[in-house]
Amino acid sequence: MNTIELKNITKTFGSLVAVNDLSLNVPKGSIYGFIGPNGSGKTTTIRMIMKILYADSGSILLNGKQHESLRLNNIGYLPEERGLYKKMKVKDVLMFHGELNNGTDLPAKIEKWLSHFDLSKFSNKKVETLSKGMTQKLQFIATILNDPEIIILDEPFGGLDPVNAELLKDAILDMQKRGATIIFSTHDMSMAEKMCDQIFMIYKGEKVLDGTLQSIQDQFGTDTIRLQTEMGAEALEGIEGIERINNYGKQQELRLSQNIDHQKILSLIMKKTAVLKFEITKPSLNDIFIRIASPERKEAENE
């Protein structure tokens, strides 16, 4: 059963095609990660799911139905651009959003979530007195206050410190356990790798990846080596068969040319220096993202 189905969605702004013939199925109870460079169409897609924007063509089904009038009581939406009434008190602003989403038993829920995110003592403070991170947590609470069936989070982790990002991640996983279907867009690839059941990548309005992490990585084979040597990156100079070196300082990630034997590369490196670690692996999501959206590829496309 798919909670959200996009069928051949196209959206243009003037001459710009923001989303082109996009189809997507989000299964019930899954966490679906939306990735893609800035301006690739993530937010436009999310806004169309939310019916904030209307698609030029195609259809969007929620729980198998067109949702023209079903305005979104069971959807929690955290937009990329945060905005809360600054002059309102924290608990009032939550009450307001809770009421707008037809919430019940709001005061108790508000208290529970404020205390979960360590915001209880700000309950009677105005929103404008909160820091950026706190406002973000507050906005997240406003999104999930009514235990929505569908939660759509546009860049939920942006601007959060690791402690708060952890809190937020746990809250999202709790929501999933409870049965919610979650879409979130992110630029944090490691978070997407760890959290998402399925990942969707959009690039220049087109779907370029869609599936589980496993299936996506399988498309790219085992052409990646994680390497640690005594000499560091210098040892790799002049070795044929290495297409790209991603140098992290203490560790390097290599992408090999096609049909190159891992063992041959290992022996070539061993001639130069002592190898401390040599791991044959699938490319990371980060690497796959860069392969698709890197400046080199853009140049290649333009030629």
């Binding site: 939310m50 904030i52 305005r71 979104l72 009581n73 959807i75 929690g76 939406y77 937009p79 651009e81 945060r82 905005g83 809360l84 009434y85 959003h97 707008l100 989403n101 906005q139 406003a142």
Partner: peptide
């Protein structure tokens, strides 16, 4: 604020 509200 408008976009947040337009979610609901």
């Amino acid at each position: 604020i408008a976009e947040v509200l337009l979610g609901s």
